[in-house]
Computed example of a mutant assay.
Amino acid sequence: MRMRTKAVLLIVFLSCLAGCGSREPSAQSPQAASSSHADSGEIVLEADSLKLGQIRTAPVVVQAAPWDEFETPGRVELDPNRVSHVLMPVPGRIRQVLVRLGDAVQEGQPLLIIESPEVSAAVAAYRQAQAELRRAQSALSKAERDLSRIRDLFANRAAAQRDVWAAENEVAQAQAAVEQAKAEQEQARHRLELLGISPNEPVQQISVPAPTSGKVLEIAVAAGEFRTDTSTSLMTIADLSHVWITANVPENLIRLVQIGENVEVELAAYPGEVLRGTVRRIADTLDAETRTVKVQTELPNPSGRLRPGMFGRIRHSHGLKPVAAVPPAALVQDNEGAFVYLEKGRGRFQRRRVRAGQPRNGWAPITEGLSPGERVVVDGAILLSGK
């Protein structure tokens, strides 16, 4: 009886041992496979996976890329050195406005017709100055004749020395009066020239000429208005043959740009077209809120197609150097930055973080994370993103 019990227990023990041994491989295999995937960081696709046919890779190449480069948004603005404001030369009534908004004008072209009583007053002042000059010249001529006569009398002992001195004093005073009259006449004549009128044409209407060539950008006056304020702008004329693009460069990048350096400009209105300008001004102060410095670049605009208010970007670098580069399509962005899928072998891929620069000419420079010759996924990266 005891022998039979021992036999039964032995059979049960062997059965349990066999059952545990058969389940051990199946329980360990997934765990081992999962651990291997985590350790390697690879994404593995089966050899017969349809995704392999949709994924395209390309090698990392070497390209010349800019160094010490910055790129920042900008806006086209008027060149403040090429903007003129038209003012009233004298108080008066606007009789006629000769140009319209947007017209192109040449320097000296009449813009307005003004009627003012000060015009005839300026002519009268000039004529009065002329008359005063003639009177002073006549008085000088008489004083010089008197001096000559007194000197003759003095030579013949018929006049005293004090009479000669008195006559000489009269001549000196007459000469001073002539000089003063000439100055007053010149001032009156200059006044007429500023008003654009001739002293021989007594008129009350004058034309206001364009101070510079350019486009009429603003008109703030209408015919019939009476204006007494000679400091208020009536029109704004700007020469658009050159414009500025203003950009706010971050504080930590302002060291990379200097006055007189050339920069590249791309405008949203003309995608793919690179314009070249020259830095004309760097602000002397820093914007405390944005921590940026205003940089203004001059752009040639002979055809007038660069219009104030257009948006774009300015870019500047200090030369080129060879760096690793990939097609921009290889870069995948997330909250932490950019990464690529590196091909490790047939059906084996690895996600790798990179530091990339601004794409140019179909290539994105890689400053950190890749080496030339490695292969990255350039098409189909989305098929690996869920792995």
Rank of each mutant, 00 (worst) to 15 (best):
D146P: 05
D284Y: 07
S29H: 06
E264S: 14
G345T: 12
V60T: 15
T232W: 04
E42Q: 09
G345I: 12
Q54D: 08
Q204H: 06
Q173P: 02
I382G: 03
A177D: 13
G260V: 05
K215A: 03
L17Q: 12
A222Q: 11
P80L: 02
F349R: 02
V60R: 13
I245S: 07
A223H: 03
L256A: 11
P59C: 06
A143Q: 03
A210P: 05
E289R: 08
G312I: 09
E251M: 03
A188I: 01
A364N: 08
A324W: 07
R281I: 00
A129E: 08
A124K: 05
V378L: 10
S233Q: 00
E273S: 11
A136I: 10
A18M: 12
A125D: 05
E46N: 10
R307M: 11
D68S: 15
T212H: 01
L331Y: 08
A121F: 05
A167P: 07
R352Y: 02
P80Q: 02
T236G: 02
V295D: 04
S36K: 11
A176T: 13
T72W: 10
S371A: 15
D239K: 08
Q187A: 10
A329G: 11
I259M: 07
V123A: 00
E261C: 05
D239N: 15
E289V: 09
V83R: 02
S231N: 13
A27C: 07
H190N: 15
Q180L: 13
S29M: 14
S303N: 14
G21R: 10
G304S: 01
T246Q: 13
E42H: 09
E264F: 05
E218Y: 07
G347S: 04
H37L: 15
V323Q: 14
E261R: 08
R93A: 06
L112S: 07
L384M: 00
S26Q: 13
V279R: 12
I314W: 02
R82S: 08
V164K: 02
